[in-house]
Structure formats: structure tokens, C-alpha cells
Design a protein around this nucleic acid. Structure first.
Length: 580
RNA sequence: GCGGUCGUAGUUAAGUUGGUUAUAACGCCGGCCUGUCACGCCGGAGGCCGCCAGUUCGAGUCUGGUCGACCGCGCCA
């Protein structure tokens, strides 16, 4: 070992010990005949004093971020103790300094808020100098808690292939050209979905994996082209078994990693109720501001925009009530809010405020006495009711986003608290206007009541056996009970207008497997990165990934993606087309 | 693919109605300093104002395009 202690370790009890520390120089304060250095590693920092002429000379030659080993005796700082660092009671009187490696000056000032560009270009320095380091440690800890938890329940960690066959459904695949089979390609997995189901057919009973998934779609603050899933599948279970296990696992992770208590039972809300109350399928329930249906109120309104929205099919007029806030709003701010909802496709945002018992609104002259009275009864003094009349889906999206925005600007919730819940009863099908047909909302292996279709129930009302776990308005995990009977799977393909040939080509190997005694099974997959974002309280996924990519999916350090040599291309039977 | 914000010494920023030699702080280099801990003081070096074109007598500043970073929409079964 090049050191006897870490840089965060020494205390008064080590007085007069002869020790050696190794780390980076992070401070240097010179006073002629005496010189202070600060040596740091990820465990902490320790002050070094150079007093002899030789030591001062050697110390003065060092630069910040040089890597050194320093030997000497631990000394009490006496009157000069500090509480700013954990080793502030002591200092190390240097008797020898070994320069292990020199460092160029830092390319940016880590104490200031440097640009993402330069921090990503020197990611290893950002990890060394910022709290990214702590977030990566949380990530490591969380992964080990997950493994411990699942191992104890008899789950087996089984790897699945990275080189797969491309399936045209779902997200765009990352492709890997084949050298041996000219013109053929592998696809990197979007998730191990089919393989984990095959493992159930294989009788493995309980499977899990922390594994990379790849999706070639445009990025967001919470999306990377490669990300990590906690992938889980179980045999001989129903929804409750999986949900109970999954929430207990997540509770354990939050408790053991950040000592946070999630509720002992996660409430369940149906997709329909979630959309109606919160305008989203991933509601944040740390605050109220639930969406109210205003259709009854305006069904006979003189104000035509409201009346028609309240009565026409597929239209809606809904609102949310923000208590005790109107006095703090200017006309300008209300205009800004309207701009926001217009960004979500709504035509306008109406508002009604209660001032001294009376309703104030730009729509005053369009509304009847009784309408104003009803609103006055709904809103408390100084409260505002915001309303949107539009296409139902637009109204819900816009109010859902407005709700989050208002809660954030008015500090309506504790940012350190957690709300965890399940969303269930998702529609099994959604209507695709482009292709004029119904398609599976989740993947086509999700179980649902197929007979309901034969009974003639409305396609849009049939729900599937799927469930999403939502924490603080983020979907952290989702899964379903799968179809395990080949016959049923065949029917579903037919319902979805997937021809036999198409089904055979896309999913043939799974379909075959279902015919060989597939057990009832189901599972769930968690977005591991998003879970770590919640554990570390960050809003950027890049903060929880050691070497992330930019929003255009490139790496600021390596320059990936990059062109390759012609020889490599020709081995792969590939010619690159020139862009115009 | 679309929209928004941003791009000026190594870094973070300022830069007025378009006008002489483009500022500051931190960092870097040299010097001084015996208890600092954001040490202090003196001096110095450091610029393709992202890139290309245009308007103009004159562009860091105005216009168009382009590249990059970030945020959002589409997309992400």
C-alpha cells in the first residue's frame, strides 16, 4: 500500500502517529518559511504543514491536482483547529513528500458552475471534483441492495444476449452489422422482454438482471440512448404477488440507501381515475390541486366556448383551483401561464379569482349570475380557478402540466418527501389514427380479458393486466402478467391485425415456446437510472451515469459516434451513402 | 424533424444607439510574505468574440445560414 490512512481518516487519537497519506493536492498556501498543503481523496482532506527548508522547497514545487504521497507525524492544530473539514483537529507535519504524478492545471473552475460541455469533455475530473462521485456511490449501493434483496428471495441473475434480432415494433433499434452474414444485422436489446419470458418457459421460476437496454430515440433530461433496467420475471404468480414483492424491494432500497421511509402499502389508482384527477398516467400525489370536471357547471352556459366543450363528444371543460394566490398574480404572469398551456395545444386558459367574496374574471360579461355564484362557492377567498375548454386529451395534458407547474412555483409540497403508488387497469388497446386500427398499448404479450372482445365490449374500455409504479410523478417501473397460452396469444395477434406470417416472423420463437408448457408468469422492469435520480434528488439522468452522452447522443470525451475506416466497412458489406 | 435558451482569454461572466487598444474575477507564470484554511500583496502572459456569408465607411454588437451544449414537443410498444 502506498498509504497508511485515507485523507479523511486521521483524528486526535492518531496524535504523534507516523503516517503516510496519498492523494491529490487541493490547496496550497505559502508564507515563505512555512507552507500549508491540502491533500484530498474521496474520503476527505487533510492539512499538511511543511516547515523544514527541504519540505517547503519540495511543497512549493507542487501544483494543484498533483498526486503525492506524504509521510510525517500527526500533530494537534491547537488554536488553529477548524470544523470546516472532518480532520480539522489535526495536521500532518511532512517529513517526506513523493510526487507520484504531476497534473496539468484544471481545464475549468470546479468551484464555479462550468458549462456542461466542458464538464462532459473532462468527465473524470467532474467525477473527482463534484458530487457526481457521491451519486455514483449511491448507485452502487442501490444495485447491491437490489441484488441482496432478490437473491434472498431465490431469484437467479441470468444474462441475456446483447446481439438480438431486430423487431420492428416499439422504439428504433440500434443495429450491429453482421460480418459473416452479408446484409444482415443484429439489434441491441430495447429490453430483455422475450428472453425473460423464455426463461420462465425454461422453468427458471424467478429471474432478475441489472442490464443495459438500448433505444435509438431522441433524448431528454431523463433519457439516455443506453440505460439500465432492473428486469424481473416470476412464474406461478398474479398481479398482487409481483406488486407486493416489487414495492417491498423499492421500500428496502429507499430505506437502506438513503434512510427514507416509503408508505408500508402503496395505494393503487386506475389509469382512468389518474387521467381524470391528474391529467397523466404518472401522477405526483404529494400535493392536491386535483382536476375538476366543470362540464355540469357550463352545460347551459351562454359562453359558447364552454357550452360546446361541455356537451360535445370528445370535448371537455375542466379546471383546477389554486387556493390563496390571486393577490400575488399579475396580468403578465397569468398571460405566461396561458402561454404554457398553449404549448400543450390548448387554445386558451381562463381564470376566475375570488376577491372580497366576488368573482373576478375577464369572462365576467359572458357568464350568468348563477354560474358566478357556483364558482364563488367552489373557490375560497383569494383563490383562482383555472379552466380549459378543448379536446378532452388536450385539456387533461394541459391541466396536468399546469398542476405540476403551479405546485412547484407555490412550493405546495416537500421536495424531500416521496409519494409512491401503483397505476393499474391500463387500456389494453389504443386507437392509431394513422393506420386506422387498434394496437397494443403495452407489448402484445400482456394478458387481458380476450373474451371481453368477443362479448362485444368497446375496445377502448378493455383493460390489461399491467401495472406501473410511480414515485413523485415519475414512472419508475412497469410490468404485466403475460399471456402464457399459445391459443390466446394467437387470438391477440389476430385482434391486433398481425397476420400469421408477421407473427411468425417477429415473435415466432416466443410463440413456439408458449406451446411447450409455458407456466403462468409475469414480471416488472424498473428504470434503474430514474430510481437513482429519485434517491439522489437530481433532475438530470447524466448525474447518475458515470459516462453519459449529450442530448444528441454523442460522447464529449471519445467523440463517439465517429466514422470508421473503409476496410472495416467493406468487411461488414456496408457502403455509406453521401448526404446531400 | 420542430421550438426555446445559450455560445466573448484556460474557466465564469460584462461589453451601452454599430465607433479608437475588447473588460473583470478565478486560474496560469514571476516575485514578496511564519498559522493559512476562498490566505494576502506586487507584477506579467494570455483573444479565430463558435463557424460561414451578408448589411455597413466600420460588426463581439444587426441579418441569414451553419455547428455545438442544454430544455421542451414529436418520438420513446
Amino acid at each position: 500500500m502506498l498509504r497508511s490512512h485515507s485523507c479523511g481518516e486521521l483524528r486526535l487519537e492518531n496524535l504523534n502517529n507516523e503516517v503516510t497519506l496519498a492523494g491529490w493536492i487541493t490547496g496550497k498556501r505559502e508564507f515563505g518559511p512555512i507552507l500549508f498543503l491540502v491533500i484530498s481523496d474521496r474520503f476527505g482532506e487533510t492539512q499538511i504543514v511543511c516547515e523544514s527548508k527541504t519540505m517547503v522547497k519540495q511543497g512549493a514545487a507542487l501544483s494543484l491536482e498533483d498526486v503525492v504521497a506524504v509521510s510525517g507525524v500527526v500533530r494537534d492544530r491547537g488554536d488553529n483547529r477548524t470544523t470546516k473539514i472532518t480532520t480539522g483537529d489535526i495536521e500532518l507535519r511532512a517529513s517526506s513528500i513523493t510526487l507520484l504524478n504531476k497534473s496539468k492545471p484544471m481545464p475549468y473552475d470546479h468551484k464555479k458552475n462550468a458549462s456542461d460541455t466542458i464538464k462532459l469533455a473532462y468527465r473524470y475530473l467532474d467525477i473527482r471534483k463534484s458530487d457526481i462521485r457521491d451519486k455514483l456511490i449511491v448507485r452502487s449501493k442501490a444495485a447491491s441492495v437490489v441484488r441482496e434483496y432478490l437473491d434472498a428471495l431465490g431469484f437467479n441473475d441470468i444474462e441475456t444476449p446483447m446481439l438480438n434480432k431486430s423487431t420492428p415494433e416499439g422504439a428504433r433499434d440500434f443495429l450491429v452489422p453482421s460480418r459473416l452474414a452479408s446484409g444482415s444485422f443484429y439489434a441491441l436489446p430495447q429490453s430483455p422482454q422475450i428472453f425473460k419470458q423464455l426463461l420462465m418457459v425454461a422453468g427458471m421460476d424467478r429471474y432478475y438482471q441489472l442490464t443495459k437496454c438500448f433505444r435509438d430515440e431522441d433524448l431528454r433530461a431523463d433519457r439516455q440512448p443506453e440505460f439500465t433496467q432492473i428486469d424481473i420475471e416470476m412464474s406461478f404468480v398474479d398481479e398482487d404477488d409481483i406488486m407486493q414483492m416489487a414495492e417491498d424491494m423499492v421500500r428496502t432500497v429507499f430505506k437502506k440507501v438513503i434512510d427514507a421511509d416509503l408508505p408500508s402499502h402503496f395505494p393503487t389508482i386506475s389509469y382512468a381515475e389518474s387521467m381524470e384527477k391528474y391529467g397523466t398516467d404518472a401522477p405526483d400525489t404529494r400535493f392536491g390541486l386535483e382536476i375538476q370536471n366543470l362540464a355540469p357547471l357550463f352545460a347551459n352556459s351562454e359562453f359558447n366556448a364552454f357550452k360546446s366543450a361541455a356537451t360535445a363528444k370528445g370535448m371537455a371543460v375542466k379546471g383546477i383551483i389554486l387556493p390563496d394566490a390571486f393577490a400575488s398574480y399579475s396580468k403578465n404572469q397569468l398571460k405566461k401561464l396561458e402561454k404554457e398551456v398553449q404549448g400543450d395545444g390548448a387554445k386558451a386558459l381562463s381564470w376566475f379569482a375570488k376577491v372580497e367574496g366576488e368573482i373576478t374574471t375577464p369572462l365576467l360579461k359572458f357568464l350568468s349570475e348563477s354560474e358566478l355564484e357556483t364558482i364563488a362557492n367552489m373557490v375560497d377567498e383569494n383563490g383562482i380557478m383555472f379552466a380549459i375548454a378543448d379536446k378532452e386529451s388536450t385539456v387533461l395534458t394541459a391541466l396536468g402540466n399546469l398542476r405540476k407547474k403551479l405546485a412547484l412555483t407555490h412550493n405546495l409540497y416537500d421536495t424531500n418527501s416521496f409519494s409512491a403508488l401503483w397505476v393499474t387497469e391500463f387500456p389494453a388497446f389504443e386507437y392509431d389514427e394513422d393506420s386506422d386500427r387498434w394496437s397494443a398499448t403495452h407489448h402484445p404479450f400482456t394478458d387481458f380479458d380476450v373474451d371481453a372482445v368477443e362479448r362485444g365490449e368497446e375496445m377502448g374500455k378493455i383493460t390489461s393486466r399491467a401495472y406501473d409504479m410511480v414515485i413523485n410523478g415519475h414512472e419508475v417501473g412497469g410490468g404485466s402478467i403475460r399471456i402464457h397460452a399459445a391459443e390466446k396469444q394467437k387470438k391477440v395477434f389476430q385482434l391486433l391485425n398481425i397476420s400469421d406470417e408477421e407473427a411468425e416472423e417477429k415473435f415466432g420463437f416466443l410463440f413456439n415456446a408458449l406451446q411447450f408448457g409455458a407456466p403462468p408468469h409475469g414480471g416488472i422492469a424498473f428504470g434503474f437510472d430514474r430510481l437513482i435520480m429519485l434517491l439522489t434528488g437530481t433532475s438530470s439522468i447524466r448525474d447518475v451515469i458515470a459516462f453519459p452522452k449529450t442530448t444528441s447522443a454523442s460522447c464529449m470525451m471519445s467523440g463517439a459516434p465517429a466514422p470508421v475506416r473503409t476496410l472495416q466497412l467493406s468487411e461488414l458489406h456496408i457502403a455509406v451513402k453521401k448526404e446531400d
